[in-house]
């Protein structure tokens, strides 16, 4: 049965149903309802809700809980995610799975609290220092937030790496009908690497990211990047909407993809051949879907709530085979379908 939930609350409930019983947070707008929901629900499932002293402490509590082998999560909004960068880098360097939620708001600095997609670079290129990647999932509906949370936990466990849900204030605050998975339906893998006490039955496990011998560190990083290649081959996700015959292909994710979809529908009503590629994974980037669209499209138009942070990735993915244009708003402004349609018409 479908229920009506805010995106933030749906993320929280879906995480619990994905077997995450350890949540560590710190208040920040516009992710507020997520932590509040966790504080209500976790005691009901004998889980842990802990309001940490900072985002830094919260991500390191996640690091500790994940080291112990349980599914753990934290959530924040843009300025808070900057603070989590340290812990995310350490988790990547220690091969620890976890889920981090960023309900993005305008930046830089304290920025604003309205919806934004200006943390794309941070999420996909530089969540923290060092050679590493994290999985980045970009839901565009409340239902997809629910579906991607359990997928994010499963994929993070499978590849032993952190995963981020890159949402925004619009998706977090809006309500849509959702169908939740059954409670207790999560499939929790055994984690033999975890630091949970060896009980005298094995050698000690060490969760660590320090390697003072450069040869050793290089080797470990290279092994990790081989794993990333497997992720790139197997884990790309994208939706292709009316792209088969499209002359103009929009590329947009998350909230801006909702606007782009409306613009595509308006364009089709006018008889214009317009489609949309919607990346669902931002890392790995869905190069396969983009190349399918690039094989016949005359123009790409990237639509974002940022100054165009995804544009370079689109160009690289299709090797600049077709011109890639950009339209975006930033600072918490949301583009309208009419604005996007005007951009499309200018290209035709």
């Amino acid at each position: 049965m479908k229920v009506l939930m805010k995106g933030n609350e749906a993320l929280a409930e879906a995480a619990i149903r994905a077997g995450c019983h350890h949540f560590f947070g710190y208040p920040i707008t516009p992710q507020t309802e997520l932590a509040a929901y966790m504080s209500k629900r976790m005691p009901q499932v004998n889980g842990t809700y802990l309001q940490a002293e900072s985002e830094i402490a919260a991500i390191n509590m996640v690091l500790g809980a994940s080291s112990a082998g349980v599914r753990a999560m934290t959530s924040s909004s843009s300025p808070g995610v900057s603070l989590k960068g340290e812990g995310i880098s350490y988790m990547a360097g220690s091969d620890l799975p976890a889920v981090i939620i960023n309900v993005q708001r305008g930046g830089p600095g304290l920025g604003g609290i309205q919806p934004s997609q200006a943390d794309y670079w941070q999420a996909t290129k530089a969540t923290g220092h060092g050679d590493f990647q994290i999985l980045v999932f970009a839901p565009s509906t409340v239902q997809e937030m629910v579906d991607l949370i359990s997928h994010a936990f499963d994929t993070a466990d499978k590849y032993r790496m952190p995963a981020m849900i890159l949402a925004d204030g619009m998706l977090g605050q809006m309500m849509e009908p959702v169908e939740l998975p059954e409670e207790g339906s999560a499939n929790l893998p055994e984690k033999e690497w975890a630091a949970k006490g060896h009980g005298g039955k094995r050698a000690h496990n060490i969760i660590n990211s320090l390697y003072l011998t450069p040869e050793k560190l290089e080797q470990l990083v290279k092994e990790r990047f081989e794993r990333y290649e497997t992720v790139k081959r197997n884990e790309q996700m994208a939706e292709e909407y009316l792209t088969e015959d499209a002359d103009v292909v929009l590329v947009a994710y998350g909230a801006s993809s909702r606007v782009a979809r409306s613009a595509v529908n308006k364009a089709r009503e006018k008889g214009l051949k317009v489609g949309l590629v919607r990346p669902i994974t931002l890392w790995p980037f869905p190069t396969d879907a983009l190349n399918r669209a690039a094989s016949h499209a005359k123009n790409f138009l990237v639509v974002e709530m940022s100054m165009g942070q995804m544009v370079d990735d689109v160009k690289l993915a299709i090797d600049c085979k077709v011109p890639v244009h950009f339209y975006g708003r930033t600072g918490g402004m949301i583009p309208t379908p009419a604005d996007v349609l005007a951009q499309i018409e200018a290209l035709l």
């Binding site: 350890h22 830094i56 509590m61 080291s67 349980v70 630091a195 060896h198 000690h204 060490i206």
Partner: peptide, 28 residues
Amino acid sequence: FTCDMVQAPHGRAQAVATGLKRARPDNV
């Protein structure tokens, strides 16, 4: 130390320990 070990980021050991203890209250 022969027990299981986790290496924490600088200054964060007690946050990491909090996460461990909340996940595994029966561990030391």
